[in-house]
Design a protein around this nucleic acid. Sequence first.
DNA 1: TGCCCCTGATTGTCTGACAACCAGACAAGG
DNA 2: CCTTGTCTGGTTGTCAGACAATCAGGGGCA
Lengths: 202, 202
Amino acid sequence: MILKPVSTVEALAEALRTRVLSGEIPAGTPLTEQELSALYGVARPTVREALAALVHEGLLRRERNRSAYVPEVTTADLDDLMYVRRPLEDLMAVAVTGNRVLAAEAALDRLAGLDAAAPWADVVACHMAMHAALIEAAGSPRLVRLYAALAAETRLGLVRLRDVYDDREELVAEHRALLDVIAKGPLEAARRAVRDHLNWRT
Amino acid sequence: MILKPVSTVEALAEALRTRVLSGEIPAGTPLTEQELSALYGVARPTVREALAALVHEGLLRRERNRSAYVPEVTTADLDDLMYVRRPLEDLMAVAVTGNRVLAAEAALDRLAGLDAAAPWADVVACHMAMHAALIEAAGSPRLVRLYAALAAETRLGLVRLRDVYDDREELVAEHRALLDVIAKGPLEAARRAVRDHLNWRT
DNA sequence: TGCCCCTGATTGTCTGACAACCAGACAAGG
DNA sequence: CCTTGTCTGGTTGTCAGACAATCAGGGGCA
């Protein structure tokens, strides 16, 4: 039985990550170490470590002698993210096609089950969790790691773009169809479906 | 004129990175914070930050309540790294073919100019610098970032594998030919050359 | 209006301390 | 002999507090 202790730094990083990804913190707002230290009741070095972790994930940026801030993710950024994401998703399609991915289906079910008034950030989170589960099913630790780096920033950008998905049912149906073709193949159809999905959606 | 101040943390991370990549530090050796603090004459929190940076790069690993250590990069690890590196290198081929990359040529020249008795780690460094220059020429910030994550760990693994390149002249000639086909194309030949290079070399 | 200086806020790094965790050694008990 | 309990020493994780360095903004002066 594996225990999973959570350090203070990890807990703080997670709390900040959640806030960043919820869209609560406007881009550019300084996240001062002292304020966070007071707000969360932890020492400043602890804040520094948590901020550094988020900077490494791409969720925050930081320049010398400046407070950390949430970056603006532009459409050019999203394009660049998509540029490198495409081949990684294709690796996934090749590795996973022909197999059901129950974790991805569960994530889609969570998405489908979201209340119509659910925050957009929750929609984005479930959606990306579904994609991440597919990636994880490919069984490559580095693929998971690289994809996570992209996913964090992608998610940050998506949280600000509200107009990609207007129709929840359509969103769910599309992703259901994607999971279906990945589960059943054939491979070329799955790869094409992944490519088309990425070219048109995210 | 842009200044590039280097913080104490960055300088220490760089010094440690160099030592890790030189192969000087055996895999598994504990890098204790107190020892490094005394050795480099910096405060322990500074050591922690530098170690955290290298952990994020994949050059060190760290577990709760344990000293950081250089991981053993197995052939399975190298295979996994190559698995995700291939499509990224293909993105490079598509983006760069038809253009000379002077920075890559310069790195290859440095490799060719290395003394026959040069440390293997230097060979690996020049070699990977050449590949990194090609990637950078693709003009995608995320590609550069993802590749860097792979390159560090790949380099760590290569430093321990001495038998991949026995013949320096052959190594240089091969990479020269690769740069040539990338510079001149045609695209399909370049992509094939990159694939073959990766399938057979690194 | 532009420049310089000062002030306040913040980051970067430090010192020193203590709690928590871990490995190893040793003693005691069954 | 094996298992459990306790202790010791070493290290990490986090803290409080301090000071140097950097920066932005405001005010004063030419």
